[in-house]
């Protein structure tokens, strides 16, 4: 399914800019008296520019099309996999989780050859451990 994305993204930036200007910046930026540029000056200017450009983009869209919806789904799958991997890495450490992440990604890509799977799952994390811990004397996540 091909869609013209500019009107959708223009609408998003129009609403995002308004949300920034009306809610997010007043709530999350402290007001300070004095000085030439207040803490909210640049964020407010950016919010206005985003809203105006979003509106302009809705009026003057290009012919840009996004990729197929299935690609977004696949991207979401990889994104979710990495996010889960990072949470697990924070709990169990790189040494245990990195081979699993590598294995999952290689299998998702379609790799089935044992040699390359072993290289990715054992060889690469091992090489990284050697470089970071032994050579650079730094800690792995």
């Amino acid at each position: 399914m091909k869609i013209n994305a500019d009107r959708a993204s223009g609408l998003f930036f129009l609403l995002f800019g308004l949300a920034l200007y009306l809610f997010i910046i007043p709530t999350f930026v402290e007001q300070v008296e004095g000085g030439w540029v207040h803490p909210d000056t640049v964020p407010n200017a950016v919010a206005i520019v985003l809203s105006l450009c979003g509106a302009l983009l809705m009026l003057r869209p290009t012919k840009h099309h996004t990729q197929e919806a299935s690609e977004f789904v696949r991207a979401g799958l990889y994104f979710g996999l990495l996010m889960v991997g990072l949470v697990l890495m924070g709990r169990f450490g790189f040494i245990y989780v990195a081979p699993m992440i590598a294995l999952a990604i290689m299998l998702l890509i379609g790799e089935r050859r044992p040699f390359w799977l072993v290289c990715g799952v054992v060889g690469m994390p091992g090489a990284i451990w050697l470089l970071v811990v032994q050579v650079l004397d730094r800690a792995l996540p």
Partner: peptide
């Protein structure tokens, strides 16, 4: 070289690099 190992390795390197 197969892209599977290249991309998996690049992802792991990015994670370790940013963590450092």
């Amino acid at each position: 070289a197969p892209e599977s190992i290249i991309f998996a390795s690049a992802l792991l390197l990015c994670i370790v690099g940013v963590s450092m």
